[in-house]
């Protein structure tokens, strides 16, 4: 079991080569950092003071995450997950995959593992991007000091982990949908609708019940007057529960499909 799972992982990883999903991860991870760098270079005269500020890293962290947490991370996860799963429908390859000597569990979970791995890859690259957003202006613009405040690495690691957990329900539901429906508009469409629903339910008392709200909640919690309804329970726990449920239901649907390809 473990050996064929490992082989299947290798095989699934090779399939992502040159795929659109890989590009989305790369572009998504460096999109905001590049914008921050460009803006800083344009307004370079304010840099000397901000680089000397004790809250330099915390401010940078917040700026970098804004568009990511609210828009790019949910959308990117919706697209990437759907694209990876849809690879088999698009190429008409389910029938080949299902005639390989692999158990259904191996097929299902190795593909999911690759998607989760790409999510991890995104977070790592994004952290690198944030660091570069601090470093590049310092190297390029004369007279800008290296940030005096130490890098709050525990904040970076903790928040990254929380964002990771908070994104899992999106991955879980998108995976379920895009394995189950041949037409990828179903999964993308549902994803977009749920994301809009998430945006609309932030002020609602039970907004935390909407599974796509968690990265947004996690971002907004750090803003001073965020006007959101404080979730009644830990959104991270909710996220993990949703993920487990979505994956469980997804696996059950996958196994009970009458036509495998």
């Amino acid at each position: 079991m473990t050996r064929s799972f490992f082989n299947s992982l290798q095989s699934e990883w090779l399939k992502t080569k040159r795929s659109l999903a890989t590009w989305i991860v790369l572009v998504g991870a460096f999109f905001t950092p590049v914008i921050i760098i460009v803006v800083r270079i344009i307004y370079h005269d304010t840099l000397a003071t901000s680089y000397a500020s004790p809250t330099f890293w915390a401010t940078l962290w917040r700026n970098a995450w804004e568009s990511i947490a609210i828009f790019l991370l949910p959308m990117g996860s919706i697209l990437t997950t759907s694209l990876i799963a849809q690879l088999e429908y698009k190429n008409n390859t389910w029938k080949q995959l299902h005639t390989l000597p692999l158990s259904l569990a191996t097929i299902f979970f190795s593909k999911l593992a690759i998607i989760v791995f790409m999510l991890v890859q995104f977070f790592v690259l994004f952290n690198v991007g944030i660091y570069l957003a601090a470093l590049v202006p310092y190297l390029v613009v004369a007279g800008v000091p290296y940030p005096t405040a130490p890098i709050p690495s525990d904040l970076f690691v903790r928040e990254t982990l929380l964002f990771f957990l908070d994104t899992l329900p999106i991955v879980g539901l998108q995976y379920l949908l895009s394995l189950h429906y041949k037409n990828f508009l179903v999964s993308i469409g549902t994803g977009v609708i749920l994301w809009i629903a998430a945006l609309g339910s932030l002020k609602w008392k039970f907004g935390f019940a909407v599974p796509y709200t968690y990265p947004i909640f996690n971002y907004l919690k750090s803003l001073p007057d965020n006007k959101i309804a404080a979730p009644l329970v830990s959104v991270h726990v909710m996220a993990v529960i949703y993920f487990v449920v979505f994956v469980g239901v997804g696996f059950w649907l996958f196994v009970s499909k009458r036509e495998k390809g």
């Binding site: 064929s4 082989n7 299947s8 290798q10 095989s11 090779l14 399939k15 080569k17 040159r18 795929s19 690879l87 698009k90 190429n91 008409n92 390859t93 389910w94 029938k95 080949q96 005639t99 390989l100 000597p101 692999l102 390809g261």
Partner: peptide, 28 residues
């Protein structure tokens, strides 16, 4: 068992070799 059912079932974004390597990993 080796099989070919109806229309070819191949990954369009990969080369011929890459398509085979994807399966070679599984068949070992």
């Amino acid at each position: 068992v080796g099989s070919l059912i109806e229309s070819p079932s191949l990954y369009g974004h990969l080369t011929a070799r890459e398509n085979l390597v994807v399966l070679q990993k599984v068949y070992r």
